[in-house]
């Protein structure tokens, strides 16, 4: 297969790959922002003592984690129009990624908050802080530091998951590879090239994780 590997075709298609890469990056950024928003709300619901908020949050998280992302994507893509909600493919894609990744982010945030020792809560309570003050001044700043590395891990997963949006005709990176594969019957060129770009994104995020780790290590948060 590789004896007639055409670098020239790849170069020819580079603008398309470039556009795909840019689309993948910004839709991933938007989706991750959405996932953080969904995750924070779900984590807050899941940490309540009463069942009224906790049970729906748990059910949602379980449902998302138990079903394939592709099924969720199609569920929104074909399901929303039947409810009379017509959205561009790109918006459906970002929505699906946000809602999916949000469930995982929720568990990361919850674990981060629960990792803060009980004594920290008690110290806040004993000094007369309200629940909101305790969260804002004592718990969340500490939980934030613990959650950054796993959140960046989840961001890496999200970038790779965004490849599925090629199936609903979003012109992202994987779609560019598919186009090259089908237009010129050159699947090797198409998919090896996108693999290289994903690797690039991966190392970018990994570098960010390492930087944040070093920064957090210096911030004197160890007990």
């Amino acid at each position: 297969m590789l004896e007639n590997f055409s670098l020239r075709t790849i170069v020819e298609y580079l603008p398309l790959f470039g556009q795909g890469l840019v689309t993948t990056v910004w839709l991933s950024v938007l989706s991750f922002a959405g996932a953080l928003a969904v995750g924070i709300v779900l984590a807050a619901m899941n940490l309540q003592r009463g069942w009224l908020f906790r049970v729906p949050a748990k059910a949602y998280i379980d449902a998302v984690r138990a079903t394939p992302l592709l099924a969720q994507l199609y569920f929104l893509y074909f399901g929303l129009p039947r409810l009379g909600i017509i959205l561009p493919e790109l918006v459906v894609g970002i929505l699906a990624l946000s809602l999916n990744s949000g469930a995982y982010v929720a568990e990361i945030i919850r674990a981060g908050i629960l990792s803060i020792p009980r004594g920290q809560v008690e110290a806040g309570v004993a000094s007369g802080m309200t629940y909101v003050q305790r969260m804002r001044l004592v718990i969340l700043p500490q939980a934030f530091k613990v959650t950054i590395p796993p959140l960046l891990g989840q961001a890496i997963v999200l970038v790779k998951d965004s490849a599925l949006l090629s199936l609903i005709a979003v012109a992202e990176l994987t779609r560019a590879g598919q186009l090259l594969a089908s237009d010129r019957f050159m699947p090797a060129e198409g998919f090896i090239t996108i693999a290289a770009f994903y690797l690039l994104l991966y190392y970018g995020l990994k570098g960010l994780a390492a930087l944040s780790g070093r920064w957090l290590g210096l911030a004197g948060a160890r007990t």
Binding site: A123, A126, G128, Q142, G220
Partner: peptide, 28 residues
């Protein structure tokens, strides 16, 4: 919450806020 502001509590395991300096712990 109000009453607790009148009662200082010192814990066996200190429970200082690890992300705050000594001064910030006292002033928070």
């Amino acid at each position: 919450t109000r009453l607790r502001t009148e009662i200082g509590f010192v814990f066996q395991s200190f429970n200082l806020y690890p992300h705050k300096t000594a001064l910030e712990n006292v002033t928070l």
